[in-house]
Design a protein around this nucleic acid. Sequence first.
RNA 1: GCGGGCGUGGUGGAACGGUAGACACGCUGGAUUUAGGUUCCAGUGGCGCAAGCCAUGGGGGUUCGAGUCCCUCCGCCCGCACCA
Length: 885
Amino acid sequence: MNDQTQERAAQPSAAPATLARYDFAAAEPRWQAEWDRRACFAVPDVPPPDSKKYYVLEMFPYPSGKIHMGHVRNYTLGDVVARYKRARGHLVMHPMGWDAFGLPAENAARERGIHPGKWTYDNIANMRAELQRMGLSLEWAREFATCDVGYYGKQQKLFLDFWKAGLVERKESWVNWDPVDGTVLANEQVIEGRGWRSGALVEKKKLSQWFLSITKYAPELLEALDGLDRWPDRVKLMQSNWIGRSEGARVRFRLTDSKVAGTGEVEVFTTRPDTLFGMSFLAVAAEHPLAAAAASRDPHAAEFVAECRRMGTSEAVIEQAEKRGYDTGFRVAHPFLEGVSFPVWIANFVLMEYGTGAIFGCPGHDQRDMEFARKYGLTVLPVVLPPGEDPARFTLGDVAYTDDGTIFNSGFLDGLDVPAAKRRVIEELEKTGQGTGVVNWRLRDWGISRQRYWGCPIPVIHCEACGAVPVPEEQLPVVLPEDVDFSRPGNPLDHHPGWKHVACPQCGSPARRETDTCDTFVDSSWYFARFCSPGAAEPVTRPAVDAWLPVDQYIGGIEHAILHLLYSRFFTRAMKATGHLSVEEPFAGLFTQGMVQHESYKGADGRWLYPEEVEFSAAADGSRIATVKGSNEAVTIGRVEAMSKSKRNTVDPGAIIGRYGADTARWFILSDNPPDRDMEWTESGVAGAFRFTQRLWRLASGAVAGLPPAGAPFAEAAGPARKLRQATHRTIAAVTEALEGFAFNVAVARIHEFANAIGEAEGQAGAEGMGAARREALETLARLAAPMMPHLAEEVFAALNPGAAALVAQMPWPEADPELLKAETLTLAVQVLGKLRATIEVPVGESEERIFALAEAEENVQRALGGKPVKKRIHVPGRVVNLVV
RNA sequence: GCGGGCGUGGUGGAACGGUAGACACGCUGGAUUUAGGUUCCAGUGGCGCAAGCCAUGGGGGUUCGAGUCCCUCCGCCCGCACCA
C-alpha cells in the first residue's frame, strides 16, 4: 500500500488552474453509504468486558412529519459527542427512535380521515430520510417507534410488573374534563379555563384513573439529585422544587358539633405548628368533605362551593382571584386550650391537592392568612416575638411576621425559639394523640389514564365480580384494533363494537377491557433501556442494560426538565425494583440545549411571512430594508424569537441541506454560540459556514499535488515547518479541551484559527520539511473537524491519501505531541501597578532576575515608574510581570 | 411573592484572578474576475494628529492585579407559585 501511494505521489501532476468546488451533494450521500456499508456505528448488545462503553442519546423526536431546526441542533450536538467519544476509543452506542403515540395522529385522523398509524409511519419514513441526510453517526439497526406493538406490548408487561410490586393504583381524582372532546386534559392543555382544541369550558370532574406511585420514590428522587454531578444545576433545582419536600406536622382538630357527618375530625397540614396558639380559624378547600357537609345543609355554602369549582384551574385566574371564604358555622376545638374553639371556613385559596386540603389559619405569621383575617375581621394574635420587641407592646399591622423570634402567648411553648417550639409542640401533639410530625411532598402520583385511541392500551380487564383484573401475561400484547371510527367524539376504543368485550380472565364471565391508554410520557420513560436490546422478548435483557446503562450523555431541550426527566428517573427505579435493571439513575450526564430562533416578519397587512418570502436591501444609513420578494410591499422586521409555525419564522432544514449540505448546516449550528444558549439562525451565518467548508476543501485539494507521501520525515530544525507543526499540536490540545467541555463554538474558532495558520504557511511551502508539516496539518484539520463536519473530513482525508482504506470515522483522535506544545519563547505582559505598559519576549526558562531586569528596562515601563523605586515585583510565569511602586 | 441565571464592540461571542474583545458575522477600503451569495489583501471598541487616555450595566469593596471574587443598586431572561 505504501508503494502504491508513493508511486501516485511521484507522478507529476500540474495543479489545476481553478480548483473544483467541493461537491457536497455528491460527497455526502457517498460517505453516508460508506459508513453504512462498513457498519461504522454498530455495537453489540453486550459489549466485550474490556471495552469502554459510552451511551450517547438525544431525546427522540415526535414524528410530526418534518424535522425542524431544533432537531438539527439536538442531533448535531449528540453526533459531535458520539463521533468524538468513538475516536477517543469508546464503544459508542448512539441509537434513534420515535416517540410515536400522541394526539396529533388522532387529529389527523379526525380532520383528514387518515388512520393514525398510517399517518405516523409515513411521517417516520419522511423524518428518517431527513435525519439520514444529516450524516449522523446513528445505529439505525436499533430503531423502533413507541407505537410498534413490539414496544408497547413490552410496556404492558412493565405495567403488570409494577402492579405486582405495588406501584400501580386505581383511584378517584379530580381531572380537567373537556365535555366536547370527551376526554381528560392535562393542565397544559387547559388554556384560560377552556380546552385547547374544542374551546369548551373545562369542568373539574372526579374520575377513576390509573396511577403510578411515583410519590413512593419522592425521597429517593430528591436525595439522588445530589449525585447527578453532570446535570445542570438549574434542572436539579427545578426537580427539587417540583418534588417539594416540606417538614411540618399533621394536626387533628375535633369538631365541636357532633352532628357533622364523618369522623368528627378535620386534619390539617402545617409547616408552622409552633404558631398553633396564634390560630384564629380553620379553612378547608371547596372539594373537602367538610365543605360538602356544609353545602348539604346550607344553600349559601353550596353556592360558594360551586363558584369555587367554576373558577377552574388556570394559574392566571388563581393569581387574579382575591381571597374569599365562607363561614360554615362549624367550629373546631383548639388541641391545647380547653374550651377554646375556632370557626371553620371554606376558602378559595386552600388546595385540595396539597397537604390535607385543610389548614389552620394563623394570621400573625402567615401573610395569606393575614389578608384573609383582615378581610373577614378575624382575630390576629402574634405568638412569635421578633428580637428586640417588647412583648407587652408588640402588635401587627397588615403584614405577617414570618421570621424567627421568641414564642409568646403560647402556654408551654413560651420562651422557645421557632425551631425548638416546632420540636416541642410536635412532641406534645404525638403524646396526646392529636397529631404527628410529618414530611409532606408536593409531588403527586402520576395519573396515566388517557381517554385516547393512539396510545398504549392499559392491560386491565374490568369484571363485575372480580374488579380490575390484570390481563394475563400470556395474553399480551393487548393490541390496538385497526378498525376504528373517528367520526364520533370521544375515545374510539370505547365505542368500538367488539374490542372491549372480553371474558374475565379470573371467573370467565363477560367483562370489559380498560379502554384508557397510557399517557405518552410513559412511552418515553424507558425507551433508553429498550435501545440496549431492541428486539428482546422481554422489555429489556439484563446483560445488555447492565452493560450499557446509564446513558452517559443525554441531550435535549430544557422544556423536559421536569416531567420527562423525572418520570424516567422514577421508571428506572421502578424497573430496578421489579428486577429489570440494576441502575437507579437513567442519565449520568445531561445537557440541555438552547432553542433555535429567527427574526420574524410581517407584511403590510400584518400577516406573518416566512423568511424565504422576504428580501433585503440596504438603506442609505446602512440599516436593512425588508420587502416581500418580487414586490415592493414593505415588511416589518420583528423580534428574534423561537422558531414557530404560527409566526412562520421557521427555516426548513431540508432546504438548507439541499442548498449548502449537511456539513454546512452542522458547522453553522455549532459555531454560532454556546450550545446551551438560544441561537439565532441567520442566512449570513449559514453562508459564512458554507464558505468555510469551501475554504477548507481548497486548502487541502490545492495542496495535494505538492505534498510528500504519508510518513515522510519531519524537519527537526526550528523554522516555518516547526512553527506549523506547533500550531497543529496546539490546535489538537485546544480542540480536545473545547469538545470535552461542550464548548463547541470554541472548538470551531480554534479550527478557524488553524485553517488561517495553514493558509499563511502556504507562502512558505518551499521551506525545509514543510511538505510533511503541511500534510500533517491538513490531515489533522480534517480529523479535528470530523465530529462537526464528518463528510468533508472524509473527503479531505481521502484526497490527501488516495487509495487509502481508512475512514476518519474509524480513526483514533489525534494526539498532541507534548514536545511540540512547548514554546521556545514566551511573551510576558509587563504591568506597572496592574496596568499594562509593555510586553517582553523571553526565552523559556529565563531566570526571574533577568525577566525583572528586562521588564524594567522597557522605555514605557521606565516612564510609568517615573523614577520611583520598585517596592514589589510579581512574576506569574508565562503570563505577567507586575511592578509595584 | 419565592428561587435561579445573565448583562463584554454594530452582532454572536472568547478570556485557569494575570496582555479584554480570540474566532466568526457585518461593515469600510483596495486587488482579481465577463460576472459573483467568488477569492485575496488591509482596516474595524470609543476619544485623540500623536503620545496616550477611557472602556466588560451603575456604585462600592477585596487584591500587586477584577469581565471573573464579595456587597449594593439597575435592567433583562427563565422556572415555580394562594404549597399551608
